[in-house]
């Protein structure tokens, strides 16, 4: 071993932690190297001082107090310590809650399945929609279900486009509205007095309806078929 390597082992040598071979090599080296001999001496002095550091006296009252406090703290921890099945139950409830909230946010309740909010509404779909809405039982079922006004406006715009192409949809819409007014609203009280109507009324029923819905959107996000029919009645009268 060279001088440089030997220096790394001097502290272990001074504390007699070297193997027998290492011990002999270092012992031979320090006989000739004054620097390493001095370092070993310094390490031994540090070791002597370290051994002399007295243990701090610990009063017996302190020990008794420590035991009492420790047992007391453990008792407190025991009260807070829930058994595993309770933890599992808490975790389950928490996950269920998170799941429900996430589902509600990601997939909000579809308002009315009869109203299409797809970008392309075809004529046969429109006819199907009209046939559903003209059925009295269906109408009674959905008359008070909230429909998002935004998706309704989109649908009405698509209907307007369809009307421009085929020229039948406006009539179909008016027929549906009359059907609702004639069949259903006769049996149920209509909220006409609370309807707020805006827009111009010199256009077709669909355009007037869209204008009315836009003005109503300022006050509410959803609307029911009962209101829609009431609007229409008010517009056309």
């Amino acid at each position: 071993m060279r001088h440089h390597n030997i220096r790394k082992h001097l502290s272990a040598y001074a504390h007699q932690e070297c193997s027998k071979d290492e011990h002999n090599i270092i012992e031979n080296h320090i006989k000739t190297c004054i620097k390493c001999a001095l370092t070993v001496n310094e390490y031994q002095q540090v070791a002597n001082f370290s051994k002399q550091i007295p243990e701090r006296s610990i009063p017996s009252e302190f020990i008794d107090q420590l035991k009492r406090d420790t047992l007391k703290n453990i008792e407190i921890s025991k009260q807070k310590h829930y058994p595993p099945f309770r933890r599992l139950a808490f975790a389950g409830i928490f996950l269920l809650l998170i799941g429900t909230v996430t589902l509600h946010i990601v997939n909000p309740k579809t308002p009315v399945e009869y109203i299409s909010s797809s970008d392309t509404l075809k004529l046969d779909e429109m006819e199907h929609l009209a046939s559903i809405l003209c059925n009295k039982e269906n109408l009674i079922a959905i008359i008070d279900q909230p429909i998002p006004i935004h998706s309704l406006i989109v649908t009405l715009k698509q209907m307007k486009k369809l009307n421009q192409r085929h020229g039948q949809v406006n009539n179909m819409f008016e027929r549906i509205m009359h059907q609702i007014n004639g069949n259903v609203l006769q049996e149920f009280p209509t909220p006409l007095s609370s309807c707020k109507i805006g827009g111009k009324f010199d256009e077709s029923g669909l355009t007037q309806m869209i204008t009315c819905l836009r003005s109503y959107q300022r006050y509410n996000d959803t609307i029911t078929f009962r209101y829609i029919a009431s609007y229409y009645q008010k517009i056309r009268s």
């Binding site: 502290s11 504390h15 310094e42 390490y43 002095q45 540090v46 001082f49």
Partner: peptide, 13 residues
């Protein structure tokens, strides 16, 4: 341990 002793020796030198 070696580093600790080395530092102690250095500081007490």
């Amino acid at each position: 341990l070696h580093l600790a002793r080395k530092n102690m020796r250095k500081w007490l030198q």
